[in-house]
Amino acid sequence: MTMGVSTPPTFDDRFENLLISPDRVLAMLGKRRAGQISFEQSEQGDARRTLLHVEKVAIENKRLQQKSEASYLETVNHQLHEILMGELVEHLGDTPEIFSDVLNLNENIGTLLDALSVKACSVSKLEPIVASLPWLYDELIAIVNSPAFRRKDSRGRIIVVETLRTALSFLGVENMRMLIPSIIVKRSIPQVTDPYPLIKQKLLPYSTGVAVTAKHLATLNGLNKNEAFTLALLSNLGRCVVTRLYFKLFDKIQLHLLKECQKDGEQKRHEALLKITPSANHLIALQQEFADSITADLFEHMQLKRLRIALSMRTCADKIPAKIGTLCKLLHQARTYTQVRMLHQQKLVEIIDVKPILAEQKYPTGALERLKTIDIFNLPLVKNDAER
């Protein structure tokens, strides 16, 4: 009889922790370095349970009198996160604020995405919309002048692109259909996530992987490949919102509580607050609870008229069983496949263990074999002749 063998972490737990830090997954698998706590000792499960009751729990909830420093720290940490969750839920009720102030996106993003979605899309139709977004203009100029896209004249001299119209023409509409949603996600990704700096490095490859996978699956399912790509890529906007708000509110609330302690002379609590750092487990719990719903809210806020992705995102957010051959089901399939690829790259999962998970998604015949040959983590951009 084997003694002391704990239950292996679930596939979902492995992936959610991978997006924060691969070291966390290693710890979950019992491969932790000296000084790291095990997953069984983490508060992730408790964080999820707390989340379900956060709106019912008053901020002035009773302070448990604990003898040990560890339990006292846990109490102070719990109190801080109660306040944080309450404020976060309040922020999530204001979608326009989330769109403009949290993600720093402009109100005409929906118009731009609609323009990209139609077959008759052209450089002349895109130019005035893109021109109203200075940050997008800067990104596109940088891309068109990069080694991958730069052009040379008849004498072999590099052509430096300086105007938006030339940039759009050199890049081409088909590339723009992939580049612009990707730039939107890139702009939305939080940049300050200490003590977990890898978050910003993982979100864009994950979003890209889901989008490229969805585009290929759409072709096999007879669905609109551009709708599938854009839905999949932008489906992580809610994840970006939760992450941005979590770290922003953590710093704000911790500073406020520290000032209160100084004012009231609570030295012990002040010292405890200084030791508390952002919790990956609380962040994961918040993402699992709110991310897809926020994305659906953002899609509806954009008032998309031609890009038909809002209803599919809402179906996914409401956890309504997705039917085979729908964009919602395709998003589930693309997410699962990308998660498997990312975990397998880091040697954090064995293919034999995820075969049942892949089988459950019911991919089209031949889809998995085809996807194996594709680099899903880079946009399939191509050089093209200038468009007018």
Rank of each mutant, 00 (worst) to 15 (best):
I37C: 07
K56R: 12
I189D: 14
F229Q: 03
N378V: 12
P8W: 00
N61V: 09
I83L: 01
S117Q: 12
D194F: 04
H53G: 04
T208C: 09
N236S: 08
N108K: 10
M1F: 10
K248T: 00
L358C: 07
E74F: 08
K248G: 01
A280V: 04
Y363T: 06
G209D: 04
K252C: 08
L233I: 08
Q79A: 05
T193Y: 01
F229T: 02
I320N: 05
G45D: 13
M176I: 07
G30M: 00
S207F: 03
F11T: 07
A120D: 07
R239E: 09
E16Q: 00
I59W: 09
C328M: 14
L168R: 03
V382M: 07
I320W: 04
I320L: 00
S146P: 08
K225Q: 09
S146L: 03
T75K: 07
S21P: 01
S71W: 04
P278R: 08
N61M: 09
L64E: 09
S42E: 04
T166A: 05
I309D: 09
V210N: 01
Y137L: 02
A334P: 03
A142N: 10
L217R: 01
L136E: 07
A34C: 11
F299N: 05
K362G: 15
K383W: 05
Q79R: 01
P22W: 02
T336K: 12
D353H: 11
R48F: 06
D94G: 00
Q36V: 12
V25F: 04
R151P: 10
Q303V: 13
H282M: 14
P134C: 10
N224A: 11
R14H: 12
V242I: 02
S207Y: 03
L258Q: 11
Q288E: 14
C328P: 11
R388V: 10
V5M: 10
A142C: 10
S169E: 11
V57F: 13
K125Q: 05
P205F: 05
D12L: 14
C240G: 03
G86E: 13
K347M: 13
L249W: 01
T315L: 12
A211W: 01
A214H: 05
A120Q: 11
G110N: 04
A120C: 09
